[in-house]
Write a protein that binds this DNA or RNA. Structure first.
Length: 201
DNA sequence: AAATTGATTCAT
DNA sequence: TGAATCAATTTT
């Protein structure tokens, strides 16, 4: 954002597309959360019913209900007994595709984030992973279902002054199914992408 | 390479 | 009701 323009949240149409397209589109945009904000530098697409790696692939459950709702809402899930991960619902209402936010480059609220993540050795370790990002920005269970087009504390906007020059893709991290799909997208020269990698990326 | 940690889901 | 799984992180 520039000094004299307030950030304007993306509208619904910016989310109503297939997850792979949205995953690419979100790169370089700014995610704003309760504690701060950052440029999105790494995402993964999940394809709903047809993607065996997607939480939505086995039908709607209490956990995945938000994924089946309209695009532009946030799906937050709890995993490994200690971590939250945040996804942006994509596609059409009734589908269950979504984009996992895997890493951001901290932009604002850095002092606050550093207190929440004392283990981070440097600024680039603050948000370089899907669960680090939620811990840093203060995203948790209560944010599941948030409408990113309506909320004033949790939304995404486009920084007109920042256009990522290119992106790279690879297979997705941490899954055991559909590992052939190259549905992870990231800014290859950005030091804030997550630490763990797949063999193809 | 292994520990951590508990909700979720599917199979008995 | 039980057991396996899990879109991860930290520490060794």
């Amino acid at each position: 954002m520039t000094a004299n323009s307030l950030p304007k949240p993306l509208d619904r149409s910016a989310y109503a597309m297939e997850s792979t397209k949205l995953a690419v589109s979100l790169l370089g945009k700014v995610l704003v959360g309760p504690n701060g904000s950052g440029y999105i530098v790494e995402t993964e697409a999940y394809g709903g019913g047809k993607d065996p790696a997607s939480h939505g692939s086995r039908g709607m459950t209490p956990r995945t209900e938000v994924m089946f709702g309209p695009p532009g809402h946030l799906y937050v899930y709890f995993t490994y007994g200690m971590h939250y991960c945040a996804n942006v619902v994509s596609g059409k209402d009734g589908e269950s595709s979504a984009v996992l936010l895997r890493a951001i480059q901290p932009l604002t609220g850095i002092k606050k984030i550093q207190k929440l993540r004392p283990g981070a050795k440097s600024e680039k370790d603050l948000c370089n992973g899907p669960a680090k990002l939620t811990q840093a920005l203060g995203i948790g269970k209560k944010h599941n279902g948030t409408d990113l087009t309506r909320s004033s504390v949790l939304f995404i906007y486009e920084d007109e002054g920042f256009k990522p020059p290119k992106y790279a893709r690879s297979s997705r991290i941490g899954i055991s199914k559909a590992t052939d799909l190259q549905w992870r997208f990231y800014l290859p020269d950005n030091p804030n992408v997550s630490r763990y990698r797949t063999s193809d990326g």
